[in-house]
Design a binder for these strands. Structure first.
Lengths: 293, 293
DNA sequence: AAGATTTTATACCAGCAGTCCAATTTTGTC
DNA sequence: GACAAAATTGGACTGCTGGTATAAAATCTT
């Protein structure tokens, strides 16, 4: 993204945080960013487009940060999980993004809503996955519901804390406490089988956000398609080749595939294909974690 | 309220539920309600005023319903609590009010936000109070935090359930499950003293929503009213007298008043007046902390 | 220096909330 | 039923919004 464009985005964020998205007019943005209307509409096709750029940027930063964070650490370690959640909440809060998310999520705009919803579902899924890693494979069938409950506790407590403009409000404590609560709740969920979210609906739901309809074969085909084009760097070609190879193995070595996917995402991060690549990898990731590869 | 005005409110609600508040123009309301612009602005001074009327109406209905519900029932009975929460959620959902609440709460409009916030805080306080009745006096200091957590769980689960447009989503089950979760959580809260919400801030916060409009004079008058009744114990009469005296001093010695208020709340804790007394004391507490006495 | 691109500044459109007001209809009262 | 008071209508008007269009100026490329 252009340097100046990025500056506009930053100014827009600060305005949105200060007075909400709906209450911020484009005129406001123009004045704060010291640009003309023409320039704004040269960068963004609409106000929504500007918000989308913000969300995009945030999601990009978050995934980048999180993937770097786990490297070489124990997936079973609760403290690592706490740290991961903390970091995410902190960067969201420091930028005021969580309030923006909430506003969009409860506003009328369907396009933006879908975007935020998508990242939230992915977030919940990620958390559910991490719960499985930390609490054990046996909670798998309740992991998503646990994640939903966990976020509920977290969000309401922080929201109320912020409302009370409590100075000594410490994220880390809430995160840790809630984690211990959720541990007990998961126990009860398993012991008494009292799920609320129907698992069938759940899979349908998640799939509608993640490209679950992908099968291994389809991914391979798509990668073959890609490779025909010549617009790729050597690195990009090689990593695609490696992924294809791994996908054609039986059984697939998850650890290897995981590593390759991470690298592939990195390798394409500056490319225009990044969106497509991300959908592919997240689809594969989902299949892998669901053991459906 | 006028019959016709009520019809307008109902039409407005249906539109707000269908397409959100922000996305509903006054023109839309005029057309659906088959009235002219002049009439609308004869009823309401603004669009916000119309929304406020809706909220007012809802709050009125809710309190009416809830007060009738408890008559002659055991305050300690968990099933009664479940029933109370269920009824409230059901009427809110059936009218689509909860979505309206959420939209307002996460929108930019400060006036409406304050209104919704107020009813939500009162709601939380009520729930906390009921938790004390059901789970026992010893959880008092954690009751509000428990209420916050409870609502968090409830809201997130129902939100996600609705998102998945799950047909077999049963409120009652969520409410019951969450109640058992909260039981465990309260246990942990008490056992390990890991509150997140600072109690001092909490009192300030709640007080800012309850009985702000109280002035010192009004409190004194109300206490005088009380003292005319003979239904009080000697202790209760004496503490009321002491509070009155202190309030008539200039300047008021905060430390003394604080102490007296605490004692008064204690002394009335078993009385039916406890709610009124609490409103009085929290109002005073707020004034005191705001140095407006 | 010439040409391409970006930026600016402004005028313009339609839709919005809200005001104002004269004309009309409904309603209450005798 | 007559008549005054009150409620309702509907349109003109203001000022703001998001968004379009465009000619002139500034900046970048080569």
């Amino acid at each position: 993204m252009n340097k100046r464009k990025k500056a506009v985005v930053d100014h827009a964020i600060s305005l949105f945080v200060e007075q909400g998205i709906a209450n911020t007019s484009i005129q406001d943005i123009l004045e704060r960013a010291s640009i003309s209307k023409g320039t704004f509409y040269n960068y963004f096709s609409s106000k929504n487009d500007c918000v989308e750029a913000i969300l995009e940027q945030a999601r990009y930063d978050a995934t980048l940060m999180r993937s770097g964070q786990m490297l070489g650490k124990d997936a079973k370690d609760r403290d690592v999980l706490v740290e991961q959640i903390t970091v995410l909440l902190l960067i969201n809060q420091s930028r005021g993004l969580d309030m923006i998310y909430e506003e969009i999520l409860h506003s009328g705009d369907k396009e933006l809503k879908k975007l935020v919803l998508k990242s939230r579902v992915l977030e919940l899924q990620w958390l559910g996955q991490r719960f499985i890693e930390v609490f054990g494979e046996e909670i798998r069938s309740h992991s998503f519901e646990a994640a939903v409950i966990y976020y509920g506790i977290l969000q309401h407590l922080t929201f109320t804390g912020r409302l009370m403009n409590q100075q000594d409000f410490k994220f880390e404590i809430v995160i840790k406490n809630a984690l211990r609560y959720i541990e007990k709740i998961v126990e009860m969920l398993m012991h008494e089988q009292t799920s609320v979210l129907n698992t069938d609906d759940l899979h349908k739901f998640i799939s509608s956000f993640v490209a679950i309809e992908l099968t291994r074969k389809e991914v391979v085909e798509q990668l073959e398609q890609f490779k025909k084009s010549n617009d790729f760097t050597k690195n990009q070609q090689e990593i695609m080749e490696a992924v294809t190879q791994e996908l054609e193995q039986q059984p697939i070595r998850n650890i290897v595939l995981e590593s390759l996917l991470r690298t592939m995402t990195n390798e394409f991060s500056d490319s225009e294909m990044i969106q497509v690549v991300k959908e592919l990898t997240s689809g594969l990731w989902y299949l892998m974690k669901q053991q459906k590869l």
